[in-house]
Structure formats: structure tokens, C-alpha cells
Amino acid sequence: MGYRTYTCPIARDCGGCEWLAVPYSIQLRRKQEQVEELLGTAAEKDGATVEPIRGMDEPVRYRHKAATPFAHGPHGRVHSGFYAAGTHRIVPCDDCLVEDPRARRILNAAARAAEKLRIPPYDEDRGVGVLRHAVVRCGWKTDDVLLVLVTRVDELRGAERLVSELRAGCPELTSIVQNVNDRHTNAILGRSNKTLFGPGVMHDRLLGCTFEIGPTSFYQTNPAQTEVLYRLALEGTGIAGGREPHLLDAYCGTGTIGICAAARASEALVTGVDQVPGAISCAQRNAHANGVEERCSFVRADATKWMAKARDETYDVVIMDPPRAGSTPAFLGGVARFAPERVVYVSCNVETQARDLEILRARGYRLERVVPVDMFPHTKHVECVATLVRT
């Protein structure tokens, strides 16, 4: 891997890849040290080790989801690009080193089409204008490309002409969706969607399974490393063909980990829990698309509240992939009450993971394996898969 570094003409202004000037081998070493500092002592006490971080062979072009804000420019121009670090000043970008090559060209094409059709960009100070953001998702193992245009208002005048312009300039687009966000918020996406072209969703494949991805679905940005992450999680479950374990997939989203588990072990039963209605309906469709719908059930509920009520359930394995804030003591207490043989904790924030693992360790579990995964090269972020077994 050596000490090669990458360059970007807007790196200083953008700030998104804060470690871009750091050789990748050193980035990995820093992330390894971060996980060892937070989890190394607990792992050592339990007879486990923090394994070497799983990095990428070539840490570029890994982001298959990209976004841009829009803003007024001089002479009717519509600005697009990235917010400069710590500001809402837009830095133009023609191509991004870490994004799918299709992404930035499509986002900039949306800005040019808005200029041509005189669709006004959103003015966040005054709360007026139409076009707020655009988000593009590009398939990793499919050719699907979904463009989401985020507007302040329901009515998008000239929508048909806009779609024609975008399809003419970006023939790779397979679907275009309007998402409406009328709130005064920094959140990009709103709650309602309107399909302007195509099926309104895209599909991609992970570990041989096909998944539907909607305009607001959570789907990992780096699918290549997601396969690494999921393989580690599935190894942690201990399941294999011929067994009939019951898995709880908490914070399941669109069901990706649980469905991969069901596809891996032909007798496995999976219960997925998530509080997002759209995610649960998508998970059900994904289970059907992969032929595991009879062994996968999905429940719309807050994971902690559901855990408090599901006192009579029994599970062999719990897989949990909570948000950055981590889990809750009540949920973790419920896990201990279920007393599964194994718990697989996938985390995007090792600090909250370390906090939660201490609760599980105090309730009769020990660490068996800890593996960091680099999902976001050139940034400080690191993910981690921790496997625990009941003592």
C-alpha cells in the first residue's frame, strides 16, 4: 500500500475528506488504534483481540450515493457542489475522487436543467424558491441510477420538461423522483415522494441478494465494504446450512443483514424490527424478491419499546446495527433477558458501541471477536463488528 496520497483541487475548501493528504496505510493505522483504545482492554479481559482493520485495496470511487445543495448564482445561474467546511457557501465540483464517476455529472446536470427551465433554487434565509437538493444513488452491481430532486413545494412546474432535459443529458438514469421537504431544517429529505420517471426505486445486490432502494431508504454508501461488514456479521452469528436458528435483526432498516442471513442458512428464521414504516414495507418486498419471505418477518416498532413487550420471544442470535447514538440500556437489558447464545453488534460509532458493550458484558456476555472496517476512507470514521457469546 505504501505511502501514496491522493490530491483533490477543492479538498481545502470542501473538507469532506479531512485525511486525504494522509497516506492510506497511516489512515488505517490511526483507525486501528482508535478501536484498540476503546475496545482493546475489554477484548483482552475476555480473551479476544482486536483484529486488523479491513481496509480497501483502492480507496477511491467508493461512494455510490452523492448529494448537492442548490443556491442562487449571478445572472440566473444555479450553483451546485459541496458546502465549504463549516459554512453554507457552495464549492463547485466537476468530479469527486471518492464518488461513483456518474454521480457528480448527474447532479451538475440537474443544476444546468434548472437554469434552462428557470426553476428557482431554494433560498434558505428567506424560505423561498423551489429546488433545495438533489441526491443520486448509483448501483454497484446493477446499472440502476436513481435521481431524487428535493423541492420546497408539492407542485414542480415544468416537471415533464425537466425530466426530458435530464434524460437527454443523462441517459443512464433509470428513475427520477421528486421528494418534498417543506420544513425549515438542515435535513435533506422530506417525507413525501412523487415518481416522475421510471419505477421510483433502484436495485442493487449484496452477497448475492437483491435489494430495493427507495428515495428515502437507508443503504450503505460504500457497498464494496458493506459486503465485508456483512460477512463479518454473518460469521459472528455462527449460523450455517442445516441449522434452524432464530435471529433477531434489530434496527433492521430495509432488511439487508437479516435477509442475507436467511439466504446463507436455508433453515434460519429472521425477525426484523425497525420504526420506519417505509423501511419495513421495503424489507418485506426484499424478502419476497430473494425467496425468503416465509422465513423472514418484519415488525414496525421502536426497537426498545418492542423489546419491552416481547418477553415471551426466544432468539438464538441478536444482530444489532443501531444509529450513531447507539442502543439504550432498556434494549440491551431486553437482549440479556432473551439470553441469546450470540450477539453481533455492528456500529458506526465505536464510542457508543464501547459504552453498550460494557452493559452486555455486565449481563453475562463476553467479547469473542472485534473487527474494525474502513467504510469511509480519507475520513476519521470507522465502523466495527463486535461478536459476543453468552458465558
Rank of each mutant, 00 (worst) to 15 (best):
R342E: 11
H64S: 15
G208V: 11
R191G: 09
A250E: 12
S266L: 10
C96V: 04
E18A: 12
L388R: 08
L38E: 08
D374N: 08
C170A: 10
L232W: 12
V78E: 08
A279R: 10
N179D: 11
Y219G: 00
A109S: 05
G291I: 06
R118M: 09
D274Y: 04
D316H: 04
L388P: 05
I53D: 11
F70P: 00
V91M: 06
D312W: 07
H378F: 08
Q34F: 11
P121D: 00
A240V: 11
K309R: 15
M320S: 13
T226K: 04
E294W: 11
P120C: 01
T256A: 15
A289Q: 13
A262H: 01
T379S: 14
R102I: 07
Y251E: 09
V299E: 06
L107K: 09
G208S: 12
D321T: 02
G242E: 00
V346G: 03
T271S: 03
L207Q: 00
T174V: 13
H133W: 13
A310Q: 14
G16F: 07
G334W: 06
I188C: 09
Y3R: 13
D249R: 01
F338Q: 13
V153I: 10
A85D: 07
L117D: 01
D182K: 10
E37P: 08
G236W: 11
Y24G: 05
L147S: 12
W140Q: 13
H72D: 04
V150E: 10
